[in-house]
Amino acid sequence: MGVMYRPPNSGQDQGHKMHHKIESACQKGKVTVIMGDFNMQVDWVNNAASGPKEREFIECLQEGVLEQLVMEPTREQAILDLVLCNEPDLIKDLKVREHFGGSDHNVVEFNLQFERKKVESDVKVLQLNKGNYRGMREELMKIDWEQSLVGKTVEQQWQEFLGVIEDTVQRFIPKKRKVIRGEIRQPWLTKEVGECIKAKEKAYNVAKSSGKSEDWEGYKNKPRITKREIRKERINYEGRLASNIRNDSKSFFKYIKNKREAKVDIGPLQNDAGNLVMGDQEIAEELNKYFASVFTVENMSNMPTIQESQGAESNMVAITKEKVLEKLRGLKIGKSLL
């Protein structure tokens, strides 16, 4: 499945590149679906080309055994947005709908029917709300950490500690199969926005069926009103998230994370020997080595002499339950620092 766009004033070279891509996709011996705005002036009902570029395009589709399935205008009176498939029976309920946002092109909607293999998921997640945390604490208190960690390197100590924690978690927190949820609903998609979208679709269908100028005039403002309502609700939702970040920072950063288009990982890195380092532990060691190299090396043989303080001494340090609670209440849960 692929999406293509051919600019209106494309030259012959761009046309040949597009034909090559289509031919390559069709040679793989699999079901092929290609859709997009091809900007081709073709009479698709009679398969008649209006020029040499269109004729070459039709020949390319015939060689790839691709059938063009859109038979209604998608921009004014022209069929520019196409759906190509070498198994046309798999394309169901193809409809040319209202304009997309502020675009002068119509939405082309269809269902792709295919057999989905049922695969049982083995992924399990922890049920943290059902964990036996009292049992975990009692189990961890039985461990002599000093005895189990003595004589080991930092990495060995970490692996020992991590192994114990993971084993305890496995024994005291139950698991369940991960539920794969369906379509993700936009959080700002309110009832009012949904009604605007439905009204826009209804007005388009009425105008398309009747062909009357007054119906098209009634539809004209619907996309603009819907776009304005969506923008307003999105701004309101983002404003509520931002204003409540002190009390609910998780929702704010979850929304920001979902808006990111790309997730960039660290690495690979190049070590001193010029080799690429790709493993997580090796990358961490290279970063640690670099950070340690910029530290200031203190001259331990020439330490300053500390003079005894001549001020008043205080032998009384009072730590009360009330003072500790006061400090805890002042912690900012959304930040790592006070």
Rank of each mutant, 00 (worst) to 15 (best):
L162K: 14
I173K: 01
W158S: 08
V179I: 14
E192C: 00
T190A: 11
G163R: 03
G182W: 07
G211C: 11
E192N: 00
R181P: 03
V150N: 00
Q147I: 00
V154D: 04
I143S: 07
E166S: 09
L189D: 06
D167G: 11
V154A: 11
I143N: 11
L149M: 03
E214T: 14
Q157T: 03
L140D: 15
D167I: 05
L189W: 13
F172E: 02
W158T: 04
L149E: 01
I180P: 02
T168N: 12
I180M: 13
Q186M: 12
Q170Y: 10
I143K: 14
R177I: 03
V193Q: 09
T190K: 09
A199F: 05
S209A: 13
Q156Y: 03
G211Q: 13
E160G: 02
P174E: 06
V206Q: 14
Q186Y: 08
I180R: 15
Q147S: 04
Q157A: 04
V206S: 07
L189Y: 12
G182R: 15
Q157G: 05
S209F: 05
E166C: 03
Q159K: 13
K212H: 12
Q186F: 09
L189H: 10
L189P: 05
E146W: 03
G194D: 07
G151H: 01
I165A: 13
T153Y: 07
R185T: 09
D215L: 06
V154Q: 09
K176N: 14
P174S: 07
D144T: 03
E201T: 05
V179C: 11
P174K: 08
G211D: 10
A203M: 02
S148V: 05
